[in-house]
């Protein structure tokens, strides 16, 4: 399946010093709930980040290839299908295989509390659950995600 990436503005692959932090917002899995992903994408864009949104129904391969193509610094993954325990670690693993292990991966969705430590152990930096204020997510990204060298 083709993927139509939506960018907050025309991005270039060129890396200039002091450039904006670039974040990929991804929707892995088959669920169609994109309300959260779109709101986060807008909030981060308004906070000055460069945003690329993958759209729905992405496989781990599609997300990692978009992340490489766009040379992003962080990936925010929204998932509400219950398949997070398989899909999120798979994405982290594929990033490492592509030598992109320093891309910060975070996520959100319907995630049972007890799954969160497991996801963290597998390399997901942070999981946000329903009811998190936008500001908290913006501040987290500002603090944790820096331009990769």
């Amino acid at each position: 399946m083709a993927s139509a990436l939506a960018r907050s503005r025309e991005t270039t692959k060129e890396r200039k010093p002091g450039r904006k932090v670039r974040i990929l917002i991804g929707k892995p899995g088959l669920d169609g709930h994109d309300r959260g992903a779109k709101i986060i994408a807008r909030a981060l864009r308004d906070a000055g980040f460069e945003i690329i949104y993958t759209g729905l129904h992405q496989t781990p391969e599609m997300i990692v290839s978009a992340a490489a193509q766009e040379d992003v610094d962080g990936i925010g993954l929204s998932i509400l299908s219950g398949a997070h325990n398989y899909l999120l670690p798979r994405i982290v693993e594929m990033l490492r295989e592509k030598k992109m292990g320093n891309v910060v991966v975070f996520g959100g969705g319907i995630i049972p509390d007890e799954d969160i430590p497991k996801l963290k152990r597998k390399g997901v930096d942070r999981m946000f659950t329903p009811g998190t204020p936008l500001q908290e997510i913006v501040e987290y990204v500002r603090e944790r995600v820096k331009p990769r060298k």
Partner: peptide
């Protein structure tokens, strides 16, 4: 579940991790 909603069988690679979940 989502694979059925999207027209995939449970053994499709697209269904991995999703079977019977939602």
């Amino acid at each position: 579940h989502f694979p059925t909603l999207m027209g995939y069988d449970s053994d499709s690679p697209r269904s991995k991790g999703e079977v019977g979940k939602c």
